Simulated assay, not measured.
Amino acid sequence: MNPTLTERELEVLRLVATGFTYEEIAEQLSINTNAARGLAGRMRMRLGALTTPHAVLLAVQAGILDGRPKRRTGPHKQPLTTRQAQVLAAAADGASLTVVARRLGITREQVAARLAEAYLRLGVTHLPRGQRRTAAITAARKHGLIPPATDKERAA
Rank of each mutant, 00 (worst) to 15 (best):
M1R: 14
T6R: 11
E7F: 09
L10G: 01
E11H: 13
R14K: 14
R14P: 01
L15P: 00
A17R: 00
T18Y: 00
Y22W: 13
E23H: 11
E24A: 14
I25L: 08
E27Q: 13
Q28W: 02
A35L: 06
A35V: 06
A36P: 04
R44Q: 11
R46K: 15
G48V: 09
A49G: 13
T52I: 04
P53S: 15
P53V: 06
H54R: 12
V56F: 04
L58H: 04
L58Y: 02
V60C: 08
A62C: 12
L65Y: 09
D66K: 12
D66C: 10
G67K: 05
G67V: 02
P69Q: 07
K70T: 09
K70P: 00
T73D: 08
G74R: 05
G74P: 03
H76P: 01
H76V: 08
K77R: 15
L80M: 03
T82S: 15
Q84E: 15
A85G: 05
Q86M: 09
A89G: 11
A91T: 01
D93S: 14
D93G: 14
G94M: 13
G94L: 07
G94D: 04
A95H: 08
A95K: 12
A95C: 09
A95Y: 00
A95N: 06
S96K: 03
T98V: 08
T98M: 10
R103H: 11
L104Q: 07
L104N: 07
I106H: 03
T107Q: 12
V111H: 05
V111S: 05
A112P: 01
A113R: 10
L115E: 00
L115K: 00
A116E: 12
E117I: 07
R121P: 01
R121H: 12
V124M: 05
T125C: 15
P128M: 05
R129V: 11
R129N: 07
Q131V: 06
R141C: 11
G144Y: 04
L145H: 12
I146Q: 02
P147E: 10
A149N: 02
A149M: 09
D151W: 12
K152I: 03
A156G: 10
A156H: 13
